[in-house]
Design a binder for these strands. Structure first.
Length: 342
DNA sequence: GCAATTTGACCGGC
DNA sequence: GCCGGTCAAATTGC
């Protein structure tokens, strides 16, 4: 079966499952049945997305999906966060999305910001790669009062070329130097929707530079993002009455970096659309070790649910996704639309 | 030579 | 005046 056929098959299957789920949601069907359907739907759409993004053609399941576009926040004050329990060698990330409306100057009030907290394990003890698929350029670093580590400021490489005003701040947390808190401001306008082409694993360092050589803004490097994933990626989204566990099988080849995640706006849009966005990931890889990216199942939290409709948070714990982490300085990239949100 | 990073200076908000 | 964020010249690397 060729790629397009596989994609169509997956999407069709997902649609059928969605219909079934819709029909039983109001029925007395057991929670287990509903969950199974949800999982099946996610798996189908996810597989389709993976195929699209990886040009996968049958056989092996491609790594996670990649589209890395900033989360589409239709409502102000939405808050998304992902929390994972960190483990050595694990990859964690927490998203906390919110409108930047407090404190900041009037100028900044209108700028959408969200935070992504990730845990990265590196073999050299240096910062892990937080590349989220976008190309960033560091424009400043500041020591922050009360913080042990300085905060780095990045802006989109294509700021002047495409008037992309996306920025991001990266800072190590005091509690755990291996955990980086990334704050994104603004959204990419440099063609973030461009489907990532199959990108060969890049070396942990330098990807930004390489991409900068491109004339067009590089789409989120989805391939890279997940390239670090190892086998058995497990993603779980849960909700008050549903928990979806998604398993992925990744090539065991060395991965470069896991960057994206997929966000399913599943529960809210069930019946309409499943994918909301996806989110990315970070990490780059120098290490081939096994880091895991897992979902926290029922631990998902929706902050301010009323605003977050559609946004699912995910947390990575340790199980199934492995991310290597090495990165020269974290590349600022961002993860939101697909991925794990909480 | 070009592009990215570094780092001190500057600016605006509180 | 302090602090966070940004600018821009100098530096570094490819």
């Amino acid at each position: 079966m060729d790629t397009s056929a596989c994609i169509i098959n997956e999407i069709t299957q997902g649609m059928e499952l969605a219909k079934q789920l819709k029909s039983i949601l109001s029925s007395e069907s057991s929670l287990g049945t509903k969950q199974a359907l949800i999982q099946g739907i996610i798996s189908s759409y996810d597989s389709a997305l993976l195929m699209v993004n990886w040009g996968h053609s049958g056989g092996q399941t491609p790594p996670l999906t990649p589209p890395l576009a900033p989360p589409v926040l239709s409502q102000p004050e939405s808050s998304v966060s992902i929390d994972e329990s960190p483990r050595s060698g694990d990859f964690n990330q927490t998203f906390d999305y919110q409108q930047d409306q407090k404190g900041a100057s009037k100028k900044r009030k209108a700028i959408t910001t969200w935070r992504n907290q990730i845990r990265i394990s590196t073999d050299n003890g240096l910062e892990g790669n937080t590349d989220d698929g976008y190309s960033w350029r560091k424009y400043g670093q500041k020591d922050i009062l009360g913080a042990k580590f300085p905060r780095s400021y990045y802006r989109c490489t294509y700021r002047y070329i495409h008037q992309c005003m996306a920025r991001k701040q990266v800072q190590r947390t005091d509690e755990d130097p291996m955990v980086f808190e990334i704050t994104y401001r603004g959204q990419h306008t440099c063609n973030p929707a461009t489907p990532p082409s199959v990108v060969p694993p890049q070396s942990p360092e330098k990807h930004e530079t390489e991409q900068n050589n491109h004339q067009l803004p590089p789409p989120p490097k989805s391939g890279e993002m997940f390239s670090n994933l190892r086998e058995n990626l497990s993603v779980c989204t849960s909700d008050s009455d549903a928990t979806i566990k998604h398993s992925f099988s990744f090539p065991s080849a060395s991965f470069g970096s896991l960057e994206n995640y997929q966000q399913f706006d599943f529960l809210n849009e069930l019946g309409h659309s499943f994918l909301q966005g996806y989110s990315p990931s970070f990490i780059s890889p120098a290490t081939s070790g096994s880091n895991y990216f897992t979902e926290r199942g029922s631990d998902f939290q929706h902050h301010d649910d009323s605003h977050l409709s559609g946004i699912t948070t995910a947390s990575t714990t340790n199980s199934p996704l492995a991310f290597p982490a090495d990165q020269q300085d974290f590349s600022p990239n961002f993860p939101f639309n697909s991925g794990f949100f909480i």
